[in-house]
Design a binder for these strands. Structure first.
Length: 118
DNA sequence: TAGCTGACTCCAT
DNA sequence: AATGGAGCCAGCT
């Protein structure tokens, strides 16, 4: 199966989210140059290679929805895992919710563009 | 090719 | 804050 070039672009963008911060699907889509494709980001994260991408891990767990919540149902294993990984890096998760005002990644655009060139 | 589906968003209530 | 509905778009069958 061929890798959708959009997926690679999305993974690469997600790798720029610093530890302790989160971004939402739509935000990643925008930064990756794919405005309006938040759902594609979800698809791409579901296909992150086990071994990471370009020898770097893809921190899929730092991506949540625009409501500031984890997008899995609270009962699921995925939810438990994502919550745990976030809390491991000091992100406060209460009832699946994260305070975007406090934890949302706000990248410097110039720096971001520079990094994505490579 | 046509539908279906969803790790989404926005807006009204 | 929670819920429901419409809009959205591309991957997948």
């Amino acid at each position: 199966m061929t890798i959708n070039p959009h997926y690679a672009r999305i993974w690469q963008t997600v790798q720029l989210i610093p530890p302790g911060k989160v971004a939402c699907y739509g935000q990643i889509a925008d930064l990756a140059g794919l405005p309006g494709r938040a759902r594609l980001v979800g698809k791409a994260l579901g296909k992150v290679p086990e071994e990471g991408w370009k020898n770097q891990p893809v921190p899929w767990f730092r991506v949540i929805n625009a409501a500031g919540k984890i997008s899995f149902s609270e009962a699921s294993e995925h939810f438990i895992q994502q919550k745990q990984l976030l809390q491991d890096e000091q992100v406060v998760v209460l009832g699946g919710r994260i305070k975007l005002k406090e934890f949302q990644w706000q990248p410097d655009l110039a720096e971001l563009l520079f990094q994505l060139e490579f």
